[in-house]
């Protein structure tokens, strides 16, 4: 069955996008003797800034009931190191999976400059503008929670590149749809959501916040219903204008199909990779079964289908 999907003109062999920050710069999971590239639609690289970033003090990760709280703080080697060393290495290694550069900055100008530099690389398919990182003091969420600020970033990136622009939205705002609309009006070609939800774990032994950064971003199965609801809302408002990459807590085909039915043309897979590197293959196989069960021949027929199902006579409560 055909799991092909198209995001902003980029053809993906499956709808599965390896979520930024959980898949490094695309190389680490290849260490598994049986990692199956053929199930991967695209790779979103680790959030990258203009200068190298040290990141937050450890501990940077904590487990929660059904979730993971992280506060990496965008540790990355800086755009120039990625463009000069990492991307050529990936190209030389023969990696053909489309790569999204996930870009971050503290100022609008920084986002634009990172976008410009990534645009010189031959093997970046799209830019994913991360205006939703909850773990950095400046930038990140400050842009993602306000429609006008978000639009400023997207407009600047739009002007700095000819590549497709995907804007990554935060669930940590009551103005999600407004922010999404502003990004679309500013020239975003696609949206991805959700980034992590702000959370905190307190260490009972020290009686202090466990993470070095105090708060972190919650991901994993715990956030899936939030992701489904937010994808649903954004699709209802903007699904006719641009594609959505839906993500948050997807670890199996059922979760991925929920995201697709809610309106995701593609599905991000992140935290699940930490405990199951075979998740992409298992999800792709399971999606084929879901499509067959629904009597659909193409994935695109399922995208947003939850909006079209009539409740009347639908048999539900």
């Amino acid at each position: 069955m055909n799991l092909n999907t198209t995001i902003a003109g980029i053809n993906l062999q499956t709808p599965l996008v390896m979520a930024s920050g959980t898949f490094g710069f695309g190389e680490d999971f290849a260490r598994f003797d049986d990692f199956d590239d053929s199930a991967v639609g695209a790779i979103s690289l680790k959030g990258t800034t203009l200068e190298p970033r040290l990141g937050n003090p450890p501990p940077r990760i904590a487990e929660t009931p059904a979730g993971v709280l992280n506060a990496i703080g965008l540790q990355n080697p800086g755009v120039d190191a990625v463009v000069r060393h990492v991307l050529p290495r990936l190209e030389a290694g023969g990696l053909t999976t489309p790569l999204f550069a996930n870009i971050a900055g503290e100022t609008v100008e920084e986002y634009a400059e990172v976008a410009r530099r990534f645009s010189t690389a031959p093997n970046i398919a799209a830019l994913e503008v991360n205006i939703s990182c909850p773990n950095v003091r400046h930038g990140g969420l400050a842009f993602g929670a306000d429609p006008a600020e978000a639009a400023r970033v997207v407009r600047a990136v739009r002007q700095a590149t000819d590549l497709p622009v995907i804007t990554k939205l935060s669930p940590n705002t009551g103005r999600l749809v407004e922010v999404a609309e502003a990004c679309v009006d500013a020239g975003s070609d696609a949206l991805s959501l959700i980034n992590t939800l702000v959370g905190m774990v307190i260490d009972l032994r020290s009686r202090r916040p466990l993470l070095g950064n105090q708060t972190g971003g919650l991901s994993g199965p715990a956030i899936r219903p939030v992701a489904v609801a937010q994808v649903f809302r954004v699709y209802a408002a903007l699904g006719h204008r641009l594609p959505i990459i839906g993500m948050g807590g997807v670890s199996d085909a059922d979760g991925a199909f929920e995201i697709i039915l809610a309106g995701g043309a593609a599905v991000g897979v992140g935290t699940a990779l930490f405990f199951n590197h075979r998740a992409p293959r298992e999800i792709a196989d399971g999606l084929e079964r879901h499509l067959a069960d629904a009597g659909l021949s193409r994935l695109s027929d399922a995208v947003g289908a939850a909006h079209r199902q009539s409740r009347i006579g639908g048999g539900g409560p």
Partner: peptide
């Protein structure tokens, strides 16, 4: 010993200065 996420180098959870 550091707390870990992926264990294979992808997530930057286990950083030591």
């Amino acid at each position: 010993e550091e707390r870990m996420g992926c264990g294979v180098g992808a997530c930057m959870s286990c950083s030591v200065m």
